[in-house]
């Protein structure tokens, strides 16, 4: 029996938090939630997640990326999954997603709404890679 994997879930929408954490807990994961970058930052100081799921908001596109970069700086081996409801073409500034070393600060990218199965599978893939 493998140890429970710890997932940090960052989204400003309470209902997305409710849904995603339900689905992920149901899939056997340990979920810590944060409503924003600030709260996530506090959590990251004491907790090293096995995976982070970060929402990108249209008016704070940068801050989402800043958080991703921060996660990668603190815990380079933690995969980051970006979730967004923006249409792909609205995610201008994706180049901001590359860190100083030119590496992407996220490992996968999915669009909201996402099917429950698809979310769980994406998480599983990232955790086992």
């Amino acid at each position: 029996m493998s140890e429970k994997r710890r997932i940090l879930l960052v989204d400003d929408d309470v209902d997305i938090i409710e849904q995603f954490s339900f689905l992920l807990r149901e899939a056997g994961h340990d979920v810590i939630t944060a409503r924003g970058e600030e709260e996530a930052g506090d959590i990251l100081e004491s907790v090293k997640p096995d995976l982070a799921i970060v929402d990108l908001m249209v008016d704070h596109l940068d801050s989402g990326f800043v958080l991703c970069r921060r996660i990668k700086d603190l815990y380079p081996e933690t995969p980051v999954l970006i979730v967004t409801s923006n249409p792909p073409e609205a995610n201008i500034g994706m180049d901001a997603a590359t860190g100083e070393d030119g590496r992407f600060v996220h490992d996968a990218f999915i669009q909201k709404p996402v099917e429950p199965r698809e979310l769980v599978d994406a998480v599983q893939r990232l955790l086992s890679s």
């Binding site: 929408d13 209902d15 249209v58 409801s85 909201k112 996402v114």
Partner: peptide, 29 residues
């Protein structure tokens, strides 16, 4: 325009997530 559509989409995405979960997860789960 981008902003308004985002504002409208946010609640719709949340509703979609709930409905999708209820459809897929069944009565037991």
């Amino acid at each position: 325009v981008t902003f308004v559509s985002h504002q409208l989409k946010t609640p719709l995405v949340a509703i979609h997530q709930y409905l999708d979960a209820m459809r897929h997860l069944g009565d037991v789960r």
